[in-house]
Write a protein that binds this DNA or RNA. Structure first.
Lengths: 248, 248
DNA sequence: CGTGAAGTTGAATCACATCAAGACACGTGG
DNA sequence: CCACGTGTCTTGATGTGATTCAACTTCACG
């Protein structure tokens, strides 16, 4: 199987100090020494395969998870069956914060591709946050940021047209990739069209149609799940205002 | 102006220990002694008049606020002008948590009626949360709960019909009043129809029409801003499933 | 009382959903 | 390597719930 070297590097990867995400992740503001303490509470998890759940709706809340590689989606199912996709998670983002309150996870989180995460038991994180003010601040910030993002999402869902939603969605992804050191112009969607539609409150068909139209207008080039943003400025305009002219 | 007695009782009111909301509010889990410490950091604020802002979008973040009486709305304005109402706040609820991250408030918060709040400077709250684990836990929970509520709102905005939105809205209010010791059946809306519409992602006219219809179906009785829930069960059904039969 | 804001109601329009059918991509077993 | 089947995606035709526009009514407040 794995050679000693690759095993070693795998182990190595689970160290925050050498993790390429450390500048975005929870231990962001910690001194080297404090980071050791933080690392001590983190648990490794076997990589999740595509479609495999990290946890399920209703499971008792024990840990939050930092995404290391790959991506996940969060969905909540209501009595009547239909479920709502409430979030996508990319590397360095924190999963499960909405479970603290009721001590169970309010939604299921499932891997969209092969995904690795760091498990951070919450009780230990909480007590460590007592000693490390920077860690506490960072935790407050993570939650606060998620609140802010949620507000933006509400605006999107209640005021924006389908075109604006798709444009915003692509821009948000682009920006998230950029921050992580990847190209903001060219990336791969790890989620299906149906997921995008569910997330944005649109029918799959609408997602497909609008992507085709954007492609026709040479704003993006889409091939399957590969996306190329051709005209970032135009896409930005599409996201905020309703396009005034017709083809131009 | 105020008699010594009323001034005294006003002062009295600002003590958590005698506040009727203490079982719902932030110091919920604190011992008497710890509550003294908590109270020491709270600042009184002059009551806000209807329409008066608690803070404005973009103001630097300094404090979170606990609503003591009255109610407020939070709105965020985007470049193009149109603004989105993202939340209503009732007594015991915590305002401003989404400002921690960027150190400025991402939206304006305005009183819907005469409203009093407790100002809690965040830096002091943060350091106090170092010493008082229960306070810290409660703060994490408040934020977590708000995240959870946001998810529910997203579901409402992206999957529910106008009827379901209105029904859900009324039920949520009803439940919040109930938890605060008021009648869940009979209450007064402090917000205008336009606010409700904005919040729920509906046109004012739609809100009005549907309330009229609910009234015709004898699910609720609405007179101006006074609401009476006549058939709670039916309203609950309306909120989750699409009504199957027509009039029945 | 009068005046402007807030709320209601009706009719026409539109953006998106739904229904339906076909194209494509991909993994699996022959 | 191909045939097959299944799931994902695209495209077109039609239907509909909510918006928009417009007019009217009611309410709150000086």
């Amino acid at each position: 199987m794995a050679s000693p070297v690759s095993r070693r590097s795998l182990l190595h990867e689970t160290r925050c100090q050498t993790c390429s995400l450390s500048s975005l992740c929870l231990p962001l503001a910690l001194e080297l020494e404090d980071m050791d303490h933080f690392e001590a509470i983190i648990r490794r998890r076997a990589p999740l395969k595509k479609g495999e759940p990290l946890f399920r709706q209703g499971d008792t809340f024990t840990s939050v998870y930092a995404v290391r590689s790959g991506s996940l989606k969060q969905t909540t199912t209501e009595g009547n069956g239909s479920d709502q996709l409430t979030n996508f998670y990319l590397p360095s983002e924190l999963v499960g914060l909405d479970g603290i309150d009721e001590e169970r996870y309010p939604g299921s989180v499932v891997a969209l591709e092969t995904t690795t995460v760091c498990e951070i038991p919450f009780d230990r994180l909480d007590s460590l946050s007592e000693e490390l003010p920077e860690l506490r601040t960072q935790l407050y910030r993570s939650m606060s940021k998620e609140l802010r993002d949620d507000r933006r999402m509400m605006r999107l869902l209640s005021r924006k047209t389908a075109d604006q939603r798709l444009a915003s969605f692509l821009l948000t992804l682009s920006e998230r990739f950029r921050r992580r050191g990847y190209s903001p112009y060219s990336f791969r969607l790890s989620m299906a069209r149906a997921d995008i539609g569910n997330y944005l409150g649109l029918a799959v068909e609408t997602v497909s149609r609008i992507l085709s139209r954007f492609q026709g207008q040479e704003v993006v080039a889409v091939s399957g799940r590969e996306v190329n943003i051709l005209d970032m400025q135009r896409l930005t305009r599409l996201a905020e205002e309703e396009e005034l002219g017709a083809t131009r």
